[in-house]
Write a protein that binds this DNA or RNA. Sequence first.
DNA 1: CCTTCAGTTAAGTGACTACTTAAGTATTGG
DNA 2: CCAATACTTAAGTAGTCACTTAACTGAAGG
Lengths: 115, 115
Amino acid sequence: MQAETLDRTFHALADPARRTMVGRLTLGPASVSELAAPLAMSLSAVVQHLAVLEEAGLVRSEKIGRVRTCRIEGARLRAAEDWLVRRRVEWERRLDRLGAFLDAEDGRQKKRRKR
Amino acid sequence: MQAETLDRTFHALADPARRTMVGRLTLGPASVSELAAPLAMSLSAVVQHLAVLEEAGLVRSEKIGRVRTCRIEGARLRAAEDWLVRRRVEWERRLDRLGAFLDAEDGRQKKRRKR
DNA sequence: CCTTCAGTTAAGTGACTACTTAAGTATTGG
DNA sequence: CCAATACTTAAGTAGTCACTTAACTGAAGG
């Protein structure tokens, strides 16, 4: 939950090519060429995107022979999700309190009208 | 769930100042100065961050008199959370399948050993 | 009124992004 | 062996980013 880690994670996810790569890796490990296949850019560009994902800790990879196999690393993705969930919960809690307050006000008004 | 919308959302969240602003707004509406208070930068810079958040649809604001009041808009935040949840679910499903497969293999090995 | 307040706008700067092409380096199938 | 494969590295470029300072607008408060 460190600021810099979230910076890198959200930055990594802010690119459609990188999200496509992450999406592919949720289905299972893949080589660099497999990750590149659906993307309309040079292999070189894909490698650079991969570097961003690895530096963010979203992906880990190992090279065997001439093939580099990549897989997702769940922790950072989970941390980003957690951050979003926490904000949403806080925000919903606030809406609930507001709703309860308005209901109470409404009740008071009706009471007043009854007199 | 359009790509460009997620681009903007994740990009907006990739900055610590903007995340601080969003965090503040989950607690309730705030003026620009209130958002700026905890940030070590000029008001002008804060206004520029606010513009990024508004263009991403994460925040909406209205000016009354000389005060601009900002509040969060939940939808886009929710969409980002959804994207992360979907990837995680996919990834966990894959791990489960893998686990089941390994368990089955393990069972087969034990059977073989029994003979 | 007129000054302070709350924000707005413009212009500039240095760093970073997302690519490209081009020229590598190991592997490996035939 | 040697050509194809699977990346890897380097260098360059146009565009974007996160600020800054400075000058400005329009609403209040005294």
